[in-house]
Write a protein that binds this DNA or RNA. Structure first.
Lengths: 137, 137
DNA sequence: ATTAACGTTTACGTTAACGTAAACTTTGTG
DNA sequence: CACAAAGTTTACGTTAACGTAAACGTTAAT
């Protein structure tokens, strides 16, 4: 008994995507909203799944990868073998995410440099040592 | 006077991409290696550009976005107006990257949960409170 | 009852980022 | 010299992730 189902356009506007996008995700089996006749009714769980999908997409995951990610939360943890496999999977994904974080940090560092150069070039109090290129790039 | 030019296959294998990919980037105007007759010769600067491109791609930037990012390092900072525009651009990009970092952190947190559940379910010393779903998802 | 707003299915179109293949040249090596 | 390895251009193919359009149903309000 969910608090209240969402319409497709509610979710679309909340997440800043088109309804087509949401239907597309369903078409690909990433979500399976209930129906009231023809109309789709999205539960809170559906909403979360969409949120997770979009979160993945923002950092460049494919839809397939997003599915894999989401499915981890609801695994068939029957035997120890499966659990170990899942743990290995988790490890992989963690490595992957950490690499992306490093990538982002490197880019942020680049932005810092550019900003400093701009500002000093705009008349921020002039540096004693003139701002040479740092080595991060 | 670069230390020594790279061949296309050297760079391809160093970065784990195909030569096709590198030629494609050139086709799109992202790099412009020198030539020895027909053969391409990549300078250290070319190498850096490729590195930056791939870094961008890993976090889901399009090639176009990568170009924009790279071009910031070599701007036409003539007047103050341009510099202010550049600073605004930097700000935008920073926001964008920080959002992606938040996305990644959220996903890492999810991984932590899954891992804990797995491990405790595998016979890590059993919890007193049975490991209920936390609220982060 | 007739619009207007929102929903639905079906289907073809599009863009980005390469893959793959063919046909050819250049370069080093036994 | 012969031939294999690596390089080149040209061109068509492919996949993912939607966009866009047509044609239609449902409900709410004027």
């Amino acid at each position: 008994m969910p608090g209240r189902p969402y319409t497709i356009s509610e979710l679309a506007s909340e997440f800043g995507v088109t309804t087509r996008t949401i239907r597309f995700y369903e078409e690909k089996g990433l979500i399976s909203p209930a129906r009231a006749g023809h109309k789709r009714l999205y539960s809170a769980a559906d909403r979360v799944r969409i949120k997770l999908i979009l979160r993945g997409r923002r950092i460049g995951m494919t839809l397939r990868e997003c599915v894999g990610f989401i499915d981890m939360y609801d695994p068939a943890h029957d035997n120890a073998e499966q659990l170990h496999a899942l743990l290995a999977d988790v490890k992989q994904r963690r490595e992957n995410l950490l690499q992306r974080k490093r990538d982002i940090d490197a880019m942020l560092a680049g932005l810092d440099e550019v900003q400093v150069l701009c500002e000093s070039s705009l008349g921020g109090r002039p540096r004693l040592e003139k701002p040479r290129n740092r080595n991060t790039l």
